[in-house]
């Protein structure tokens, strides 16, 4: 790990000020579970860390609109086990609890989870070219071992995936990300938060370097009655997703009134397709309907030599997740 200086931010305004000076090459540190890991690997090397763990962004509160506002510094564990989250947004609880380990979830924060970087092996390996780590050097994964890589929204410059489970649920729930920057506050719809790699794979998301995530806002609709988070991986626990599915339904008898579908492990951001969801509206909640939606969302999926299997895996996982959502079975 490189040497760096350290300061503890008093309040949100001070945190934004402290990180803003470009010559300082500063970064926020929250749980530390991703940043310190990457610093030990010499993938990231900030010269200054601004500790934001003492900011008062550590509460979960009702919003006026009837939703819930999750503070950026609340830990993933406290969020998942929060009584309101667990009862009104169980999809989110389940997605969080499907990720990492209890120790890591006790440290990891909601803001940090959104900002975590890809687990692409070449991104971590400073001996190999990687456009995300060092723009312009090339992508080692495209012709390398790409089993864990993306099948949707890739570019010739990067085929990495976003590794978060929590974010897949937040995408399905249409959360909003509240941020504070030097010029004030803004809210980013979840679908616009993360980016596709395009020709700037070094940018994971649209947050500016001097902006601080302050909260994640959940809208009132939580799909508590019919939802499922299905995570498929190489071992049953403590592993990143090969494919994960957040599925949610609002039913009127047997008829689908509203549907949400987001995929993890398949793209540079949680993957949604409004047309696939629209296909389900007004249909009866059957396997055939779910298959149609699966076909639609995977239209245009493109495999690489070692991850071709993900396309069929995702197709089946989507159908299974919707079937589980019908009964809320685990």
């Amino acid at each position: 790990m490189n040497s760096f200086s350290y300061s503890r931010a008093r309040d949100v305004a001070a945190a934004v000020d402290e990180v803003a000076l470009p010559e300082r090459q500063a970064k926020f540190i929250a749980g530390g579970t991703n940043l310190l890991d990457l610093m030990k690997e010499n993938v990231m090397h900030p010269r200054h860390l601004v500790d934001i763990t003492h900011l008062e962004l550590n509460t979960i509160e009702d919003t006026l609109e009837g939703g819930l506002r999750l503070g950026a510094l609340v830990t993933n564990a406290d969020t998942a086990y929060h009584e309101q989250v667990d009862t009104r947004y169980p999809l989110l609880s389940k997605a969080i609890l499907a990720g990492a380990s209890p120790q890591l979830r006790n440290m990891a924060t909601n803001g940090g989870n959104l900002m975590q970087r890809t687990r692409c092996y070449y991104f971590y390996d400073t001996a190999t070219p990687c456009n995300k780590r060092e723009p312009g050097t090339g992508c080692s994964a495209i012709r390398g071992f790409n089993r864990i890589h993306a099948i949707l929204g890739t570019s010739e410059h990067c085929i990495a995936t976003h590794p978060s489970d929590m974010c897949v649920a937040l995408a399905a729930l249409e959360a909003k990300v509240h941020v504070r920057g030097p010029h004030g506050d803004r809210a980013i719809p979840f679908a616009d938060f993360h980016r596709l790699p395009g020709d700037t794979p070094e940018l994971d998301n649209n947050l500016q370097p001097d902006e601080l995530i302050t909260a994640i806002e959940l809208p009132p609709q939580g799909f508590a009655d019919h939802h499922s988070y299905l995570k498929l991986r190489d071992r049953t626990s403590y592993a990143f997703a090969l494919v994960s599915v957040a599925a949610a339904l609002e039913l009127d008898g047997d008829t689908i009134r509203e549907a949400r579908l987001a995929l993890g492990g398949v793209a540079h951001k949680p993957w949604r397709d409004p047309e696939a969801e629209a296909l389900l509206i007004g249909k009866s909640a059957t396997r055939e309907s779910f298959q149609l939606a699966a076909e639609k969302i995977l239209q245009g999926a493109k495999g690489f030599p070692y991850n071709e299997f993900k396309i069929e895996l995702a197709r089946r996982a989507i159908v299974r997740a919707f079937e589980q959502a019908l009964t809320n079975e685990k």
């Binding site: 749980g31 890991d37 030990k40 564990a77 890591l104 006790n106 440290m107």
Partner: peptide
Amino acid sequence: CDHGQCGACTVLVNGKRINSCLTLAVM
């Protein structure tokens, strides 16, 4: 592992278990 992957470094901070390898002492 020193990377949060094995749990050998688990300690309790204010009663909660964490990986001590992925946290800074100053924090």
